[in-house]
Amino acid sequence: MLIKTRTDIPASEITPEPVYRARRDFMRGAMSAAALGLGAIAAPPLFAAPAHVARGEGRGPDWLRAQIAAADENTRALGETLTPFEHVTSYNNFYEFGQGKTDPADKADALTTDPWSVEIAGEVAKPGVYPLEDVLKGMDLEERVYRLRCVEAWSMVIPWIGFPLAALLQRVEPTSKAKYVAFETLVRPAEMPAQRSRFSTIDWPYREGLRLDEAMHPLTLMAVGLYGKTLPNQNGAPLRLVVPWKYGFKSIKSIVKIVLTEREPKTTWNMMQPREYGFYANVNPEVDHPRWSQASERRLPSGLFRPNIIPTRLFNGYAEEVAHLYKGMDLTRYY
């Protein structure tokens, strides 16, 4: 081989969880100090936050950043190495901004996420168009470290900040007819370049859906932040779904519409390639994608000469919590 350089991420670049927590504690301390008007005294240069933490306070409204800073920490720790912030935010599939993994990080800056509102409709007692502020009002945010397994056979470990979807659904009171939840991503060609492309086979908006019991499951999260900051646009700001036991494409980004339905809703990848992408899309090493195996995954960052290949686990390692949802179902048929 001609390429002889090891490009593993040096251990020094990965933020160990305790350090990351300490940084968060520091940030929180600084924030409350600032609130008391003591900012200048409490943050002498000696204790200045590391550059990439300071950089990443995130955009978005002040109220949201304050709420994120107050989130409960690590309510679900995993004991697995976190994928570094820079990779989580620079390696994304967000087809509204292009096909390439770096397109979202390169192009999503233009997206306006404030003001933002979410329409909740269908089989609910309290339908309406809710400003994001109302959606989050009174929600206790918590940090959850989840595995994210992409259908393309790579995976990451990400500390999200959000609230259980169940808390939002309970507020709008689903009727007895509600059996499914359908989600839609924003359509705004002016800010989402791939929505202007003639070659795209995606019929916008991007659509996803869950069965109501999946949506109500305590693991199902509506995320507004990651790594202690507001979501970067490329990660689905300002509000996205995270369903850790399903392939990543189920975790729809930049949500503007939630509809409770009686029938199974249409979902984007299933509409394009029904043989390759099912409605359920549960992570399952036994059920291969027609064009590749799902038995293993490359956990990112993956070193060049030591590819970080690990076996994929049923329901992405969350079988204990979610397997009962699929009792008696043929998972090779309902993939």
């Binding site: 390429i3 620079s90 993994k101 770096t102 790579w154 960052p301 993956s302 060049l304 590819p307």
Partner: peptide, 22 residues
């Protein structure tokens, strides 16, 4: 092209999944 991708690899410019990019 080979020199270019080698340079980008050595200087860690290939992101989270250099294998795929290369």
């Amino acid at each position: 092209p080979l020199l270019w991708i080698t340079y980008r690899t050595v200087t860690h410019q290939l992101g989270a999944d250099p294998a795929q990019t290369i």
